[in-house]
Amino acid sequence: DESNKPILLPNESQSFERSVQLLDQIPSYDTHKIAVLYVGEGQSNSELAILSNEHGSYRYTEFLTGLGRLIELKDCQPDKVYLGGLDVCGEDGQFTYCWHDDIMQAVFHIATLMPTKDVDKHRCDKKRHLGNDFVSIVYNDSGEDFKLGTIKGQFNFVHVIVTPLDYECNLVSLQCRKDMEGLVDTSVAKIVSDRNLPFVARQMALHANMASQVHHSRSNPTDIYPSKWIARLRHIKRLRQRICEEAAYSNPSLPLVHPPSHSKAPAQTPAEPTPGYEVGQRKRLISSVEDFTE
């Protein structure tokens, strides 16, 4: 099969070098950035008060330690540790928490760990991170309901609301924008112990962030949302095809390698009803078989 044979790379090609550099910018793992907010007593309706908090309760602090690993920003190499735009020179604080497994990295933009500057009256330095995160974990210690939209931002799609209760338990629920209701189930609340709260809140936030990324990708319907490693695979396959075309153009005697095509017509299947918005969006999480067989 010609399409699977190794090909020689061009010795000097600026377009090839640019493509390789672009490939280096696509990590081999999925990345997520999640905002974390603490809401104190009497702050449920005040964005400024929430963003001005420099610490929270003892249970909130224990919750943070379970979310991930504490890292010092100045020691991080952005090409190895995903920071979601946090500055490593102290502009966004000294520490944050991050978490990773074999296929993804997540960083938490924690408002109480970011510096509260006197010259920044409206807390814009914090909002440029927190307001651009799709998902926020809100530790609501106010005793009042927290409403979506209290923290203004164009991309605040989903809130994971943590409400501490007695007996070391917590109520965990989801809020989302109306255009996200087909992807996020907000109907079920959970009672979770303090011990298990970081794991549950983190998983709910990661799932909500993946759904938000799919939702946000609708602005470019021709580019369905893939995982990062599938995006790398697609980029490599496009690069291979372009090299083959350039080689055939410079030397017409060489065969032009095309991806294999299936001449056999697909079997006719009964027509199915058109899937609704929710089903269609969830299918976009699934990769096409052509990603692996071309």
Rank of each mutant, 00 (worst) to 15 (best):
D87K: 14
H216W: 14
D120L: 09
G149N: 11
Q21N: 09
D30A: 04
A189G: 07
L233T: 14
G93F: 07
R18N: 13
L73T: 13
K152A: 13
E272F: 07
H55A: 08
V188S: 12
Q175W: 04
V172Y: 00
D133H: 07
A35W: 02
L233M: 11
F63G: 00
A111D: 02
W99H: 05
V158P: 01
L239R: 05
H235V: 15
L37P: 00
V188P: 14
F157Y: 15
L256M: 12
L51K: 03
A248V: 09
E168T: 03
N170G: 04
M114N: 07
A271L: 12
V36S: 00
L67N: 00
H55M: 11
D79F: 04
N209R: 01
T293C: 10
S187A: 08
A201L: 01
I243T: 12
Y249M: 14
D179T: 04
T163A: 04
S288G: 12
N251F: 12
L148M: 15
P273H: 10
D125L: 15
V257E: 15
A231K: 14
S173C: 12
N45T: 10
N251P: 06
L67I: 03
E181Q: 07
R282N: 14
S193T: 06
A208Q: 01
F63M: 06
N53K: 02
I137E: 00
T163K: 06
L70S: 05
N156Q: 14
Y139E: 00
R59H: 00
P115Q: 05
N156G: 06
G68W: 04
P221F: 04
E168Q: 14
F63S: 00
C124M: 15
I103G: 04
Y225W: 08
Y58S: 06
Q21P: 06
D145S: 07
P273M: 13
S187Y: 03
G90A: 08
A248Y: 06
K152C: 10
K80Y: 10
N45K: 10
E245D: 12
E91R: 15
P255T: 08
L9E: 15
D79A: 06
W99Q: 03
I286R: 10
R218D: 06
H129C: 07
A231S: 08
D141H: 02
G153T: 04
I243P: 10
R59F: 00
F134L: 04
V257L: 12
H100I: 14
Q203T: 08
F157T: 07
L48K: 13
P252D: 12
E245G: 14
A271V: 06
L197S: 03
H159Q: 15
D179Q: 13
D125W: 08
Q105T: 12
P259Y: 10
T293E: 07
L67D: 00
Q268M: 10
V289D: 13
A271P: 10
P6Y: 05
S250I: 08
I71E: 08
Y277P: 14
H215D: 02
A106Q: 04
K228H: 09
Q43A: 02
A211P: 01
Q241F: 05
L73N: 14
G276A: 11
D79K: 06
Q14P: 10
P78K: 12
L233K: 10
V162A: 02
A247L: 08
D92I: 07
S136W: 14
S15Q: 12
L256N: 15
S173G: 08
H215V: 14
P6A: 13
F134D: 01
S57R: 01
S193E: 02
V160G: 00
R234L: 06
G143S: 04
H122M: 12
Q175K: 08
K190I: 15
T293D: 10
V188G: 13
E12W: 07
R240S: 14
R195V: 08
I161Y: 01
L86V: 13
K121S: 13
P270E: 08
D118L: 08
D24H: 05
I243K: 05
P266I: 14
T269C: 11
T31Q: 15
D87N: 12
K117I: 09
N196Y: 04
S44N: 08
D87W: 01
N196H: 06
I286Y: 10
A205D: 00
L130G: 04
D118W: 06
Q241K: 14
G276D: 11
T61Q: 09
G56K: 02
R177M: 13
V172Q: 02
P252I: 10
F292V: 13
L256Y: 13
Q241G: 08
G153A: 10
I230A: 13
P270W: 09
R218S: 08
D1P: 15
N209G: 13
L206D: 01
Q77K: 11
W99P: 03
P252K: 10
P273S: 11
E272Y: 07
E54T: 09
N45D: 08
T186V: 09
A267V: 07
L51M: 06
F146W: 13
C244I: 12
S219D: 13
A208Y: 03
A231D: 12
H129K: 11
P259A: 11
V192C: 05
C89V: 07
P259G: 14
K283G: 11
G131Q: 15
Y225N: 07
L165E: 02
N140L: 00
D92G: 09
S3K: 12
K190Q: 11
A247G: 09
R18T: 12
F292Y: 12
T274A: 10
D179W: 04
G66D: 01
L206H: 01
P115K: 07
V192L: 02
S263H: 10
R18I: 05
H109L: 06
E72C: 11
L83M: 07
D79T: 10
G85R: 06
D120S: 11
R123Y: 14
S250V: 11
M180S: 01
E62V: 05
K5D: 15
F199L: 06
I286Q: 14
S44K: 02
N209P: 01
A247P: 11
L285Y: 08
P266N: 13
Y167Q: 04
E246Q: 10
E181V: 09
I103R: 03
L183Y: 15
S136R: 02
E245I: 08
A231H: 11
N4D: 14
K190L: 14
F155N: 14
E72D: 09
G276K: 08
C89T: 14
S15M: 09
I50A: 03
I26H: 03
L254G: 15
T186N: 07
S193K: 02
Y277W: 12
S217M: 07
R195Q: 11
K264F: 08
A267L: 07
C98N: 10
W229L: 06
Y249A: 13
Q25C: 08
R238G: 15
R238K: 14
Y167G: 06
V160D: 00
C244Y: 09
S142H: 01
N4C: 15
G42C: 03
K5I: 15
P78I: 13
A271S: 11
S136M: 09
I191P: 03
L23P: 07
S142R: 00
I34F: 04
Y97D: 03
V172C: 03
K33Y: 15
L285M: 10
Y277H: 14
V289N: 13
G182S: 11
E246M: 05
D118N: 11
L254K: 15
P6Q: 09
E181R: 04
C89D: 14
H235R: 07
Y58P: 09
R177G: 10
